[in-house]
Each structure stands twice: as structure tokens, then as C-alpha cells.
């Protein structure tokens, strides 16, 4: 479902760990499949030598993690954030600056970046969660644009539009400097696993339950005692921190960051689109969405040359199609036909 709309009739116990021997057998089988898949994916760098394809995998994993992280607030909480690039940028710039000025390892720097993003999320959340609907979306856009303007303005710190390049001057693992793409493959895959774990955990937890209640009907939930602001904040904080980690991986893999490639509206929209097309509120949805967009971008680049724009046009088209025809996203292609889409007059 697109954010803000009610899901199909949910099983009352959905999200709560089902009990019983059959359920635990199913869970174990799922766990085995997951472990097997992970092992297979980890073996890929050993036989893949093509640097370009490896880079594609890294891009896919990165976007999958970003889409999953976005989904925490966009899907489960139903808050359409179009400003997530701000957190991505914080996660990109913080470790780079800490490395270049104080020699701090980007591993520590990345953690600090995530912490900073979480703190900013608390601050901005308490402001924007007072707004609903269109105003909320516009406020998130404004927030990201403010971050971008600040990054551009404080040139003595960030080199502004010029960006920061991380010169590659030799293999240094603790500084995340690798000649080959393989280490980034592993790191990015790790990030996906972590994000998946956080999402899965959250779904089963009390917070996940409250989020669903808020998404269905915030006023009703509040009347039952759910402090919606705190719950939404929790989701946003987790989402922001994970998005920031994505920014850190990106920065050191690409070796160059600037406000336009990290804090842009286009990136915020792209992340949201991936989760929506794939299917918000599901574990596979954002991953499928990310894979589709990455694949589509590659195919259009290969077929149409480096002339930009084709992939953007395509995923804009996909988003429109999803909204009009398949609001539950691709993931819904495999579930029961969706019930009546929730009709709600625009809240404001």
C-alpha cells in the first residue's frame, strides 16, 4: 500500500510471533533458506572478477538497505518522508570530515555519523510530526533542502559544491581504502542484513504493533493511549541512523561526495520510489524495488548510452503506474487481492 492507506484486512495476530510446532518448523525452514542465500551471496566475490558487475551488486545492496530503512518510517509508520537524503548526507560527510581533519577511522566515523543523524531525527521529528499529509511531505523536503544549503554554504568545512574527494593512495583497510570492490561488496551486504534484522525485529515488537495502529487510524490509536509522537520518533531515529550508515558506505566506495550527490531531492525520491514500487510494509518489497530500479538503470544505460534521464523517466513512470494500478506494490502480485483501498479525505 502507498503510505497513508490501510493495508488489506490484517490477521489479528499479524506481526506477533505465532506459536505452535508448525509455526516454529516454518520459522526454522525460513531461517535455513535465509542462511543458505546469505552463504551463496558471500561466495560471489570469489568467482566474480568483473569490477563493474561487482559495483552493480554494491549499488543494489546499498539501495536495498536505504529502501528498507526508509520503509521503517515511510511504510510501517505511514509517514511519507521526501527528505531522507539529509540523513544520507550526514552519514556521508561526517566520517569523511573526521578522517580528513582528525585521522579518525571511518569505521568509528560512520557510527558517529549515524548517531548525529539520529540526534537530528529527534530534533526534526518533533517539528514535522505535528504536520500531516501534504504539509508533512513539504516540510521533509524543506528540511533536506536546508541541510543541502548548509552543506553548500559552510565551504571552509565541506568545500561546498566542489565536494570532498577521498584520495586513494594505497590499500588501508581501517580507513576503508581498498583497491578492489570486493570488500565493499561484503560491507554493503552486511548493511542489508543488519537493516533486515532491525526491520524484522521491529515488526514483531510492541513498537511495530503501535505503528500499525497509528497507520490505520492515528486518532483512534491515540485515544487508546498510544503516544504516536514517541512511536513515530522511534521509527524515524532507527530509519535515520541506518540511512546514515548507507551514506558512509557510499562515500568510501565512490571516493567522492558533494551536496548534489548526497543531499538531493532526487535521491530522497528515488529511495521512496524503490520502497513503494516494491511494496511498503514488507521485508521483500524494498529489496525487490531496489533491484528493479538498479536493473532498469543498467539496462537503459546499456541500451541508450550515457544520455541521462531515461532511467529517471522510467521510474517516474513506474511510480505513477504503481499509484494508479498497484498501490500495494510489486510484492502484492503474490498476495491475496487487496481489499478496498482505504478511502480517507486528505488530512491536514
Amino acid at each position: 500500500m502507498t503510505p497513508g492507506e490501510s493495508p488489506p484486512l490484517a490477521h489479528p495476530a499479524e506481526g506477533l510471533a505465532p506459536a505452535g510446532p508448525r509455526a516454529s518448523r516454518m520459522a526454522r525452514r525460513r531461517g535455513l533458506w535465509a542462511a543458505a542465500a546469505l552463504a551463496a551471496l558471500l561466495l560471489v566475490p570469489f568467482w566474480l572478477s568483473d569490477r563493474y558487475v561487482m559495483h552493480l551488486w554494491v549499488t543494489f545492496y546499498l539501495f536495498a538497505a536505504l529502501a528498507l530503512a526508509w520503509d521503517l518510517i515511510g511504510g510501517y509508520a505511514g509517514q511519507l518522508s521526501l527528505g531522507h537524503a539529509a540523513f544520507f548526507a550526514l552519514g556521508a560527510y561526517t566520517p569523511v570530515l573526521l578522517l580528513q581533519r582528525w585521522g579518525l577511522s571511518p569505521i568509528a566515523g560512520g557510527v558517529l555519523g549515524a548517531a548525529l543523524a539520529a540526534a537530528v531525527a529527534v530534533g526534526i521529528g518533533s517539528i514535522v510530526f505535528r504536520l500531516r499529509g501534504v504539509f508533512f511531505a513539504m516540510a521533509t523536503i524543506a528540511f533536506a533542502e536546508i541541510v543541502r544549503a548548509l552543506l553548500l554554504h559552510f565551504r571552509s568545512l565541506t568545500q561546498g559544491d566542489n565536494g570532498l574527494a577521498i584520495p586513494f593512495t594505497g590499500e588501508r583497510p581501517l580507513d576503508l581504502m581498498f583497491r578492489s570492490e570486493a570488500p565493499f561488496y561484503v560491507i554493503a551486504l552486511g548493511l542489508v542484513v543488519v537493516t533486515l534484522a532491525v526491520t524484522a525485529r521491529m515488526r514483531r515488537s510492541r513498537i511495530g504493533y503501535y505503528l500499525r495502529a497509528i497507520r490505520d487510524d492515528q486518532d483512534a490509536a491515540e485515544s487508546l493511549g498510544v503516544v504516536s509522537r514517541d512511536v513515530k520518533l522511534a521509527a524515524l531515529v532507527a530509519s535515520a541512523a541506518l540511512t546514515a550508515l548507507g551514506g558512509t558506505v557510499y562515500a568510501f566506495d565512490i571516493g567522492f561526495i558533494n551536496p548534489d550527490s548526497t543531499a538531493s531531492l532526487g535521491l530522497s525520491i528515488e529511495i521512496a520510489i524503490m520502497a513503494i514500487i516494491g511494496g511498503v510494509g514488507t521485508l521483500a518489497g524494498p529489496i525487490v524495488g531496489a533491484g528493479m530500479i538498479v536493473a532498469l538503470t543498467q539496462i537503459t544505460n546499456a541500451a541508450l548510452g550515457s544520455r541521462g534521464g531515461a532511467s529517471t523517466a522510467l521510474y517516474g513512470l513506474l511510480l505513477m503506474v504503481t499509484v494508479l494500478l498497484r498501490p500495494a506494490g510489486l510484492a502484492a502480485l503474490w498476495s491475496r487481492p487487496t481489499g478496498r483501498r482505504g478511502e480517507r479525505r486528505g488530512a491536514a
Binding site: 525460513r30 533458506w33 542465500a37 558487475v53 521483500a284 525487490v288 533491484g291 536493473a295 543498467q298 539496462i299
Partner: peptide, 21 residues
């Protein structure tokens, strides 16, 4: 549910093959 994961894998495989020679 499993079918979704297979779809995800298929999409990934597609991405892996879509690169210029």
C-alpha cells in the same frame, strides 16, 4: 512469501547480467 524472495533473486540476477560487453 518464498515466491517474493525468488522474485527478488530473479531481479538481482537480471541486474547482474545487464552490463555492456
Amino acid at each position: 512469501m518464498t515466491r517474493r524472495w525468488i522474485a527478488a533473486a530473479a531481479v538481482v540476477a537480471l541486474a547482474a547480467w545487464a552490463f555492456p560487453a
